[in-house]
Design a protein around this nucleic acid. Structure first.
Length: 598
RNA sequence: GGUCCCGUAGUUCAAUGGAUAGAAUAGAAGUUUCCUAAACUUUAGAUGCAAGUUCGAUUCUUGCCGGGAUCACCA
């Protein structure tokens, strides 16, 4: 916040008057002082020796002395360890800082930037239910959206639904052949699960056919191509493209089931979208764009009629955009979708694609193609690439049945949080509804925090048995801190204390836990900016944890209502209120709710 | 093979080129007449290997070793 800026300006002036040197404020970096030393901010002075013509230690001392003399009692002391200049800040400065923050009801919301961005996430296929990987994807995309909003941007949350293609036809075919008219209503199954089951069924039957063919002497590779089921599925896809009523009707019906199922899962996850895009609507547009690109000579046609883009100048390969028969590929669709989105939202300055890191190459190519087509905005596009979620048994593989289903996992989380909460006897006086809300808040909070606290770029390990904890660096730990503060604020209200700032200046001295925590509070908006720049909710997660930990230490060491000094008592209530606000806002950025009681 | 990513306590995660590499968990030992012990305190434990750049390297460069992804007329 402002304090850091003030210090930097003073340091810049110190260089001017001490060493007659122009050191830009933007070149000065202050870091928080390590706990074992006195002070709050540290200036590393090793590199200034050339400017000051002194040893790092003497440089640091000279600057420290200057700051104490010239900062009007902001810097009240300093110490130098080797070349590290640790600056001690007056308690009054921290108190003022808290006052400023507590007077900002929307602290953590930066001013409107005028920038519009689109964040794509989830983007499932409609032949399978959502799984653990989708959870990381959705939580990430949703959280990044919130973080960008907090930065003042206008954010559109979207997803592209892969609702067409051979995979859907497989489910449809299996359902036709083996389904006996089963519907979500008749079987009580969730729609996405039901369709997913038929996708599996297809695969099983298909394998049987292959095995049979192989037994009859057909080579395996050929068998995979000529198995009757596969041929039928391909025929179905053609019929779909021609919008043959039977096939098209069935497609609509089964996709409808899937969407109902997905909606239920998204609601449970607590994520939503501003607009949905369907591949069945955009894939044709992609074709047109490719044709246009051909006219502009951005692409070229091979003898067989297939269309390619040459990316060898960019160090990549040639990439197919349209097959010889004129049908589109994955890339074609993504080109169409990207352009459609900019038509829908002309003021958009950036698209962010939340997609797993196995598609890094794909997006590299996509952005290059868009650039070749002359779209200036292509430069700003960003692939929010995240690592895979591994299980202790290794990679999730649907064929081997090692996929962790999203609904099942969330259910399990609720069960665990329910059991745990009951065991602790924490739900006295809760209505049934309140209690089940709490279980959800905690279970989902634990899960989201677990998936978001890790740097998105990194692969992570998820052990369903052990990963989700309620102690330590977890969602519930932070939620618990919030609930504790809420209890204090409730009690303060009962006792008639209003957390006002009228007498902040009379607070006097601060406890070290208070000072450290106020420092953290002052860093909140910086952290939001950093998280936005890195597209990393993990930064917010880490921050929220540090803040909660800091407050818990304060809570343990310092009493509020037993404090005899009324001014201090008031100050601590106001202080607690600000911490609660920042925790709530921070968790909000992660898409995690916080309970008033737990 | 080309390209890219990753190797940090037993385990899961941190660390704009900065100080004695932080946490959590599991382990050991403590703290409830006091605002919620889902908390707090103490303790033990780690940078794959080898060079280089630097006052200073987990971070940057190179090589090696190990793990993963990708290089589809699949999506």
């Amino acid at each position: 916040m402002k304090l850091e800026q003030t210090l930097k300006q003073q340091i810049s002036q110190a260089f001017q008057s001490l060493f007659d040197y122009e050191l830009g404020v933007e070149k000065i970096s202050l870091q928080p002082t390590r706990k074992e030393f006195a002070g709050a901010y540290t200036l590393v002075c090793f590199s200034y020796g050339k400017i000051s013509k002194k040893s790092p230690e003497d440089t640091a001392k000279t600057i420290g002395e200057y700051l104490v003399q010239n900062t009007n009692k902001v810097v009240v002391g300093y110490n130098v360890v080797k070349g590290f200049l640790n600056l001690e800040i007056a308690d009054g400065v921290w108190i003022d800082l808290l006052k400023i923050i507590s007077n900002q009801p929307d602290y953590g919301q930066l001013p409107v930037s005028g920038k519009e961005v689109m964040v794509e996430y989830s983007s499932p296929n409609t032949n399978k239910p959502l799984h653990l990987g989708h959870l990381r994807n959705n939580f990430l995309g949703y959280s990044v959206s919130n973080i960008l909003k907090a930065c003042g941007h206008k954010v559109y949350k979207v997803q592209i639904i892969n609702d067409r293609g051979i995979h859907i036809c497989k489910s449809m075919l299996a359902w036709q052949k083996f389904g006996n008219g089963e519907t979500p209503e008749s079987s009580g199954k969730k729609g996405d699960k039901l369709v997913g089951d038929y996708y599996v069924k297809f695969d099983q039957e298909y394998k049987k056919e292959i095995a049979q063919l192989v037994e009859q002497g057909t080579p395996k590779e050929k068998a995979e191509k000529v198995a009757p089921l596969m041929l039928e599925a391909q025929e179905m896809l053609l019929k779909w493209e021609q919008k043959e009523p039977n096939v098209y009707g069935l497609w609509k019906r089964m996709n409808g089931w899937v969407y109902d199922g997905f909606d239920a899962t998204y609601t449970q996850m607590g994520v939503d979208f501003d607009k949905l895009y369907y591949e069945s609507n955009t894939y044709l547009l992609g074709k047109d764009i490719v044709e246009q690109g051909l006219d502009k000579e951005a692409f070229f046609k091979k003898e067989d009629g297939s269309v390619w883009v040459d990316l060898t100048d960019e160090g990549l390969d040639e990439k197919l955009l349209l097959r010889a028969d004129g049908t589109s590929v994955y890339m074609t669709q993504d080109i169409g979708t990207a352009i459609e989105r900019f038509k829908d939202y002309p003021k958009l300055s950036q698209q962010i694609y939340t997609v797993g890191n196995e598609q890094e190459y794909h997006f590299k190519v996509l952005f290059l193609i868009l650039k070749k087509l002359g779209y200036a905005w292509a430069e700003e596009n960003y692939h929010l690439s995240y690592g895979m979620v591994d299980l202790p048994s290794g990679k999730m593989k649907s064929r081997e049945g090692t996929v962790v289903d999203a609904d099942d996992l969330m259910k399990e989380m609720f069960d665990t949080s329910t059991a745990h909460t009951k065991e602790l006897g924490k739900i006295e006086g809760f209505s049934e509804q309140e209690a089940s809300d709490l279980y959800e808040t905690l279970g989902l909070g634990a899960l989201k925090y677990f998936l978001l606290k890790v740097d998105p770029k990194k692969r992570m390990l998820f052990d369903p048995q052990e990963s989700i904890q309620f102690h330590g660096n977890t969602g519930p730990f932070i939620q618990y801190t919030y609930a504790r503060i809420s209890a204090i604020l409730r009690k303060a209200k009962e006792l008639g204390y209003e957390p006002t700032d009228t007498h902040f200046e009379k607070t006097g001295t601060l406890e070290s836990t208070e000072q450290e925590t106020i420092y953290l509070l002052s860093e909140f908006e910086n952290k939001i900016k950093e998280a936005a720049k890195e597209y990393s909710p993990a930064i917010i997660a880490q921050y929220a944890y540090d803040l909660a930990k800091g407050y818990n230490r304060f809570y343990q060491e310092v009493s509020i209502f037993n404090e005899e000094d009324e001014y201090k008592l008031h100050f601590r209530i106001a202080f607690s209120k600000v911490v609660a606000h920042v925790i709530k806002k921070g968790m909000d950025l992660l898409g995690i709710r916080v309970p008033e009681r737990m």
